[in-house]
Design a protein around this nucleic acid. Structure first.
Lengths: 131, 131
DNA sequence: CTTGACATTTGCCAAATGGCGAATTATACT
DNA sequence: AGTATAATTCGCCATTTGGCAAATGTCAAG
């Protein structure tokens, strides 16, 4: 049904919920909103109002303003990023990505970028063949 | 009529608008919302959604998060995003990982952590079976 | 296979938001 | 004063949100 074009927020929320891990019901109970509504939000059928967003932020381990930014309610204003090491200017790392990945052990973090590298090389060879 | 109990937000908005000074119509034009709606908001008959709040913030000379806080959507004193908050649950992001990943577009970054999530759930189900 | 205890999704509803256009009110100009 | 013009408020309505309860799905134990 819903091979949703763009549902950033729903996916993010769901991922975060699963990662915790929580069921919809438990999250609903902790946040004080209905599980059915949360389900629809994750599915992209509803868009959470600011009130709902505020309620589910902490149970999901988000800062309120973080979630608001992800929802597009606030514009991403501070250049955030993986500052624990100022030196690496890199472009910009998405704060959400930084946050999720930062919770993993370093080996896992490196493994992840290893996978990324592999995928990129595969993609490259594919475009090569098709030329 | 409008001897409203407490209409914090409406009064603040109106005051700010008058101080600029702007008419409802001009503010409406600049913010891209209807003047009638803004009028009701100032009168406390409607409460602005996050979308509306976001649109009127800058035309009124507010910072977005400032208005959100005034509206009660964000808890006060909430610092903007992660940067300043050292009390981050979990560890920190490996600088190398941050640099490499930071060079990718945000969609790719998110896709990567999506893959991570999938792998984790697979791993979990595997350990479950073998137990 | 069936049962029972969960979780998730769906149907339906009340309440609220927000826009449009008309009515009303305020402001200015002669 | 009277009238033209701009600003605000009101009536109405489409759209959306979010809750409740029932339906459906999932999964382990009997």
């Amino acid at each position: 049904m819903d091979s949703n074009y763009k549902n950033h927020l729903g996916r993010i929320i769901k991922q975060q919920r699963i990662a915790i891990p929580l069921t919809l019901q438990k999250l609903a109970a902790r946040a004080g909103v209905s599980a059915s509504h949360l389900g629809r939000i994750e599915a992209g059928q509803r868009f959470p109002s600011a009130h709902i967003l505020r309620k589910i932020a902490k149970p999901l381990g988000f800062e309120e303003d973080e979630l608001f930014t992800l929802a597009g309610y606030l514009s991403p204003q501070s250049p955030i990023i993986a500052e624990t090491s100022p030196s690496y200017s890199g472009r910009q790392l998405d704060p959400y990505v930084a946050r999720v990945l930062g919770q993993e052990p370093v080996e896992v973090q490196r493994a992840v970028i290893g996978v990324l590298t592999i995928l990129k090389s595969i993609a490259q060879s594919l475009t090569k063949e098709s030329s």
